[in-house]
Amino acid sequence: MATRQGQALGRLAVAPAVAALAAWSIVPLALAIYYAFLHYQLDNPDNTFFAGWSNFYYFVTDPFFAKDLFNTVALVLLVLAITIAGGVLLAILLDRPMWGQGIVRVMVISPFFIMPTVSALVWKNLMMHPVYGFFAHVWRAFGLTPVDWFASIPLLSVGIIVGWQWLPFATLILLTALQSLDLEQKDAAQMDGAGTVDFFRHITLPHLMRPITVVILIETIFLLNVFAEIKVTSVGGLAGNLTYLVFSQLNDANDVGEAAAGGLIAVVLANLVSAFLVRIVGRNLEA
């Protein structure tokens, strides 16, 4: 459709963005591959040489690697569980007629707009501090011993913080999807004698399957890369993930080569996940 001149103009208009993003995706990748095979330490740059696969070997055999790989996956799954289950419930709740729906909605979605460093520190101190935190007070009020969250259950603690931040996202998307549910379908289901539970199982849940997939896939991209919450709450040693391990290789060990090798492993992991995402979002794009 349209003219050759228009087509040419269209390509010209797209060119700067494609060039910028191509540079942004290719140059770091090329350099990461270069460094990953290079023995290169920031504190001794003169002793730099081709290192073969040794950086990968050292990164993978690092005692933290297996643990942090597990943490990476566990954190993603934990937060997904919190946000999907909570999101479906909250969305259905917010879809009900009530007074002050707008205000409730604002309260529920607010955590999403809090910068990660703020939510991490507020939770770590004001909420989860083992002596002065809000939870400690509540526990004591019930005669229980307060939990030392970040010392005893660090991964779960980080999961709660990140889950709190992402629950609004899931809620908002599922609510948007729910509101597009055809009202006539509700009427028809009622005419057919479907009860609340039947309606949820046979109409609501299937209708939400697509947005749930979208939520899972998009959250996964971000959750694989949780960083600020781990760094700021200082649980990197206990509940670090791959992103954090790469950071500490650079920051603490000054080892560019090994950090780059770790980064490439993170890239591979993310690509495995995103292969699914591109396919599904792509299908929605065509529809």
Binding site: L21, L29, A32, G263, A266, V267, A270, V281
Partner: peptide, 26 residues
Amino acid sequence: TGDKLLWMLSTKMMPPAGALIPIYLI
């Protein structure tokens, strides 16, 4: 165009951990 869009999206999936070292050194 559709594939270009998907490719753009895929650049968003590049984990920052992978780009951290090159960007830091650049």
